[in-house]
Design a protein around this nucleic acid. Sequence first.
DNA 1: CGATATTGATCAGTATACTGACTATCAGTA
DNA 2: TACTGATAGTCAGTATACTGATCAATATCG
Lengths: 154, 154
Amino acid sequence: MKDNNDMPGHLARRFQQIAVAVFLAEVGEAGFDLTPVQYAALATIKANPGLDQVTLAGLIAYDRTTITGVVDRLVQKGLAERRASSRDRRARELEITDEGRRVLRKITPAVESAQAIMLRGLSAKEGEELMRLLRKAIAAGNELSRAPLREIQA
Amino acid sequence: MKDNNDMPGHLARRFQQIAVAVFLAEVGEAGFDLTPVQYAALATIKANPGLDQVTLAGLIAYDRTTITGVVDRLVQKGLAERRASSRDRRARELEITDEGRRVLRKITPAVESAQAIMLRGLSAKEGEELMRLLRKAIAAGNELSRAPLREIQA
DNA sequence: CGATATTGATCAGTATACTGACTATCAGTA
DNA sequence: TACTGATAGTCAGTATACTGATCAATATCG
């Protein structure tokens, strides 16, 4: 009979569980209160000023119903702003605030440290290989989740 | 600047997201309504009859507060039973029902198929290597989450 | 132009996960 | 035995994620 440890799904869940715990611990010790999801969203808003929520969701592969709450919390913390779009009155344009920029800058060392801790059981080479295999598996399965990754249209 | 695709945490989240979607799709097509978490819990109850909830949580690395709800739903679906323990009046002993056994048996092909689909972008060798690296990273980070894996004490 | 389809955002509902607190019970020790 | 600490389970609260529905606005095509 198959063990849990032979199930990629179980290993995926477990690795993600640890990754989130490590991220929260490192960021918390640095004095910030930001989740992995909020961090990714904020960094993506900074890199793509004025993008709408659907585009943001596509860039980080979040469900569009999840993004609503994530952006709510970023706005509530004063890290991002949500404005009505002038081109499309359905859409909301997202901008990072000065405070958001400051937090992103200060939080970076903790985030990098967290990424290292997640892989601390692996050699540098193994860490690279793990990421390569994850990227490959993810690319092949991209369309299988409700929230696939979407590039920005040129 | 670091891309999301260079962050093991982001890749972990994305891979898990796809894994859950694939599991639910395969199991759903087979006519069953069981989540990955519920499946793992049920299979573990079957393999360890009479275990209590804390032991169950340890065997699959779930938080003990999460287990309460998961077992609630298994009981509600008639797949498992929760009994008061005779040895320890705080504890609840868990048992799989005949229906639970039946579901577990019938659902296995869909579960195995899901595991294969998650890795469809990888060769057999790469899939093995991905699982090996995940196991290694997880083992090193086991104590970093609130819900570490715990073996049964002999 | 107008009917239709699509899209952006949100909402209600459900299921993980976690934090922190609480009760009941058990175990070990002074 | 009485006190203390640990443990099993649950609960309230918060944050992802998803399904499916709805509403407003835009796009498309006959």
